[in-house]
């Protein structure tokens, strides 16, 4: 088994604006998806959401506001899973509710240092 990092991205304009019922349903879908991975004993760390604000530091002390000024998709959160192969990790990512709001999941294997 190898660890894989899921990075959740979505358009920064696609922040949830739905009714409380829709928000509730969205939470439920995330819970179901995480629960499903955990039930397969393949969840390492459910991870966290990332706050909207952010700073990016570049050489020569250049600091810019927000990581998403030039990219449409912003990083919204991460989760750590374990799987036997990249294919299996991708399979786990398929049920992610982020696709319903046009977002994406980047799957990256973690190479132990």
């Amino acid at each position: 088994m190898k660890d894989f990092l899921f990075l959740f991205r979505r358009a920064s304009t696609a922040m949830p604006t739905g009714s409380p019922e829709e928000m509730q349903s969205m939470t439920q879908q995330w819970m179901d998806w995480i629960g499903s991975i955990a039930a397969q004993n393949k969840l390492v760390d459910r991870g966290n959401r990332l706050g909207e604000e952010g700073k990016v530091l570049r050489p020569n002390n250049v600091v810019t506001d927000g990581p998403y000024t030039e990219i449409k998709e912003s990083l919204g959160g991460y989760t750590l899973v374990k799987a036997n192969s990249m294919d299996e990790a991708v399979e786990l990512a398929k049920g992610c509710p982020i696709f319903a709001v046009g977002g994406s999941v980047e799957v990256r294997p973690i190479d132990q240092m």
């Binding site: 439920q28 819970m31 179901d32 995480i34 629960g35 955990a38 039930a39 397969q40 004993n41 969840l43 459910r46």
Partner: peptide, 28 residues
Amino acid sequence: WESILQLYNTLLPIEYSPIAALNRTFAL
């Protein structure tokens, strides 16, 4: 059953066990 399902969804990431995984599926 929705409450039980969500409780299992919260329990499994804290502590996996085959029984909890099966019970979660039953609740689903």
